[in-house]
């Protein structure tokens, strides 16, 4: 084992400092050290996207980032997405449009969609499908997820 090193990461608006082993994956830091278990692990090879968080504002697979790499960065997870009791439009869209079934891929899928709508506030159906191609869902066949993202995009455009 190698010596723990100090890190400070701003997670969901709170500075979190810890001593971590360099090999600790960001996803495990979030889940194990901070008890932010909404971010999930679904594969070993950076394909499934269940672990997607926003790292300095851009979507990243937190299973493919060492916590030490995120030292000094800002991380947003699914737990930090709602504004108090008010759901983020994407959370609302997923609920309204039945964009989830088992819910395991959902946090990562939503965080990917946040990144997508930030870059492209009015995506076409094809752009949405391409935009979430880094996230696997085994339950929904994606159709209701696409609807959910469209729902959110429309709502965000109105406000």
């Amino acid at each position: 084992m190698s010596e723990p090193v100090p890190i400070t990461i701003n997670v969901n608006g709170r500075k979190r400092s810890a001593m971590v082993e360099p090999r600790l994956l960001l996803v495990h830091f979030l889940r194990e050290s901070l008890n932010l278990t909404g971010t999930h692990v679904g594969c070993d090879t950076s394909q499934c996207g269940a672990c997607t968080v926003l790292l300095d504002g851009s979507s990243a697979k937190s299973c493919t980032v060492f916590a030490v790499q995120a030292d000094g960065s800002e991380v947003q997870t699914i737990e930090g997405l709602a504004d108090g009791d008010e759901l983020h439009p994407l959370q609302d869209g997923f609920w309204e449009e039945h964009g989830l079934q088992c819910g395991y891929c959902t946090p990562g899928m939503i965080m990917s969609a946040v990144n997508l709508l930030e870059e492209n506030p009015a995506p076409s159906e094809a752009e949405i499908r391409e935009g979430i191609s880094g996230n696997l869902c085994r339950c929904t066949g994606y159709q209701h997820i696409v609807n959910a993202i469209q729902h959110a995009a429309e709502r965000m455009a109105q406000s």
Binding site: G49, S58, K61, V65, N115, L116, S133, G134
Partner: peptide, 9 residues
């Protein structure tokens, strides 16, 4: 290349 998350990193 890859997907959005991969391209971001």
């Amino acid at each position: 290349i890859g997907d959005a998350q991969v391209r971001n990193r």
